[in-house]
C-alpha cells in the first residue's frame, strides 16, 4: 500500500526485522526480569514496597514497548510517518525504563546489566532506522 503515486515500496526491511525480533527479545527480557524478581525476593532482603513498585513499572513498560513496536510495524508497512514518529516518541519512556532496570533499581544483577545493554542496543538501532523511515515517508507524501 504505497502512499505515493508511483509503485515504489518505501517500507524499510531492516527496520521491520529489527521491530519483529526486538519485540520477541523484549518478551525474553520481561520474563527473565520477572523471574529474577522472584529470585532476588527469595535470597535477598527485599522490601515489599520496592518489589511492588518495580513489578508495576515492568508491567507499564510492557505496555509502552508493545504499543511502540505495534505502531512502528504498522507505520512502516503502511508508510505513514505519523505512527512511526509516535513510535519514536514512545522510545523515550521505553529507554528510560530499561535504564532504570539496568542502573537504579534496588538490586542489579550482572545478568540484568547484559540483558538491558542488549535491549538498549536494539532500541537504538530501531530509533535510527525509524528516523530514516519517517523522513522517507514524509518526503514521499509531500511530493504527491
Amino acid at each position: 500500500m504505497a502512499a505515493s503515486g508511483n509503485n515504489r515500496i518505501l517500507s524499510s526491511l531492516p527496520y521491520q526485522i529489527l521491530l519483529v525480533f526486538g519485540g520477541w527479545y523484549y518478551i525474553l527480557y520481561s520474563v527473565v526480569t520477572l523471574l529474577l524478581f522472584i529470585y532476588k525476593g527469595i535470597i535477598l532482603p527485599y522490601p515489599v514496597k520496592n518489589v511492588v513498585c518495580e513489578v508495576v513499572l515492568l508491567i507499564f513498560l510492557c505496555g509502552v514497548e508493545g504499543t511502540r513496536v505495534f505502531l512502528g510495524k504498522k507505520g512502516n508497512l503502511t508508510e505513514r510517518s505519523m505512527s512511526v514518529i509516535l513510535s519514536l516518541v514512545l522510545t523515550v519512556p521505553a529507554i528510560i525504563g530499561v535504564v532504570y532496570f539496568l542502573r537504579w533499581q534496588t538490586y542489579v544483577l550482572q545478568l540484568e546489566v547484559i540483558l538491558g545493554a542488549i535491549l538498549l542496543v536494539v532500541q537504538g538501532l530501531q530509533s535510527v532506522f525509524g528516523l530514516f523511515g519517517a523522513i522517507t515517508f514524509a518526503r514521499a507524501s509531500q511530493l504527491t
Binding site: F21, W24, Y25, I27, L28, Q110, L111, I114, L115, I118
Partner: peptide, 21 residues
C-alpha cells in the same frame, strides 16, 4: 524462527555472563 532467535540470544547472554565472571 522466533524460537531459534530466542535460544541463540539466551546462549549469547550466558556466554557474555561467563565472559565477565
Amino acid at each position: 524462527i522466533p524460537s531459534r532467535f530466542l535460544i541463540v540470544s539466551s546462549h549469547l547472554l550466558v556466554l557474555l555472563t561467563v565472559f565477565w565472571s
